Computed example of a mutant assay.
Amino acid sequence: MPIVVRLDVELARRKIGVGEFAEQVGLTPANLAVLKNGRARAIRFSTLEAICRVLECQPGDLLEWVEEE
């Protein structure tokens, strides 16, 4: 998939655990894992907004487009 989710990098930089982060954002740990591991097919803007609010970042800090080989 040409969109890479860099959520794990941002969580590690801020030293936030997945369980704590899921609670702050309002997601289940299972849904957060799907997103974090790049298996999500879509994300709601409200979820992206909540993630950016908690991490104090921009959507571009979390998502990266890479060309497929």
Rank of each mutant, 00 (worst) to 15 (best):
I51A: 10
E10C: 07
R14M: 11
A12L: 11
T47W: 03
P2K: 11
Q24A: 15
G60D: 12
E67N: 14
E68L: 12
V5F: 09
L62C: 09
R39F: 01
V54T: 09
R14H: 02
R44H: 05
E20R: 14
L32D: 04
V9F: 05
I3P: 01
G38Y: 00
L11N: 04
G19Y: 07
T47R: 04
K15H: 14
P2E: 01
E10A: 10
F45P: 10
A33D: 10
P29H: 03
A42C: 11
W65N: 04
Q24H: 12
L62M: 05
V34L: 15
R41W: 06
A30P: 08
V54G: 10
A33R: 12
T47K: 00
R44T: 08
L32T: 14
G17A: 13
R53P: 01
T28V: 09
R13H: 04
A12M: 13
R39T: 06
K15R: 15
N31V: 00
I16K: 11
P2Q: 11
L55C: 02
I16Y: 00
L11H: 03
N31F: 09
E23W: 07
G19I: 05
V25K: 02
V4I: 12
A30F: 12
E49W: 08
T47F: 04
A22M: 10
E68D: 14
S46F: 03
V54R: 07
E10L: 15
R13L: 11
V66A: 12
A33E: 05
A22Y: 08
E20C: 05
A50H: 08
E64G: 04
F21P: 02
N31A: 13
P2F: 08
L55V: 08
I3N: 01
L27I: 10
E64W: 03
E23A: 15
R53F: 02
R44V: 01
K36I: 10
G19Q: 02
I51Y: 07
V5I: 15
P2L: 01
I3W: 05
E49V: 06
V34D: 07
C52A: 05
N37M: 01
R53M: 00
C57N: 01
D61G: 12
V54I: 13
L62V: 09
R39S: 08
E20Q: 14
C57I: 09
R53E: 00
A42L: 06
D8G: 15
A33S: 15
A30I: 11
E69T: 06
I16H: 01
V4Q: 10
G60I: 06
V5K: 02
T28D: 09
D61Y: 01
D61I: 02
R53T: 02
F21A: 00
E64C: 00
A33G: 14
Q58I: 01
E68M: 07
F45K: 12
P59C: 05
R53H: 09
I51F: 04
